[in-house]
């Protein structure tokens, strides 16, 4: 049995949510999927560890959940959209996670994003035909 390799494996700093990753993180994603429902969220809040056990979330994954280590959760292969369901209400945004991956602050991360805004009108005017305010 072998997980086959892919063209995307060597994209730097990039983890594609494919079968290999989805298979390994299935239980935690399944648990996080239940967080769409308020009743499940409050059941989790009462006893996070017991809630993990109910879904077979064990080992490092369980440690991440109990310790609210959302970044490690992603590193272990938890899906970003499912991670958001536990992290955002607890004050960690997707941008916070992105910044943490780069080892910079969220403000620095946002400043890097804003660099894409520089000279945008000029670039679009050069291509032509764009709404430009």
């Amino acid at each position: 049995m072998v997980w086959k390799t892919h063209d995307y494996d060597d994209i730097p700093g990039t983890y594609v949510f494919d079968g290999k990753v989805a298979h390994a993180s299935y239980n935690i994603n399944k648990m996080l999927f239940t967080f769409n429902t308020e009743e499940c969220r409050s059941e989790f809040d009462k006893d996070p560890s017991a809630y993990c056990d109910k879904f077979g979330v064990t080992g490092e994954f369980k440690d991440c959940v109990v310790n609210k280590d959302f970044l490690k959760m992603l590193r272990l292969g938890c899906n970003i959209y499912f991670m958001a369901k536990i992290a955002i209400p607890r004050g960690t945004s997707v941008q916070d996670a992105g910044a943490a991956f780069q080892g910079i602050t969220t403000e620095e991360f946002q400043a890097k994003l804003l660099k894409n805004r520089e000279g945008l009108e000029e670039r679009l005017a050069k291509v032509g035909g764009y709404w430009n305010g």
Binding site: G98, F101, F109
Partner: peptide
């Protein structure tokens, strides 16, 4: 856009504009 990994925050303006065109 890319939400996670060390490459999180990637935006490729040139490619985006080319895609629209």
């Amino acid at each position: 856009h890319q939400l996670q990994g060390e490459r999180a925050g990637l935006i490729n303006v040139d490619f985006d504009i080319e895609c629209i065109e």
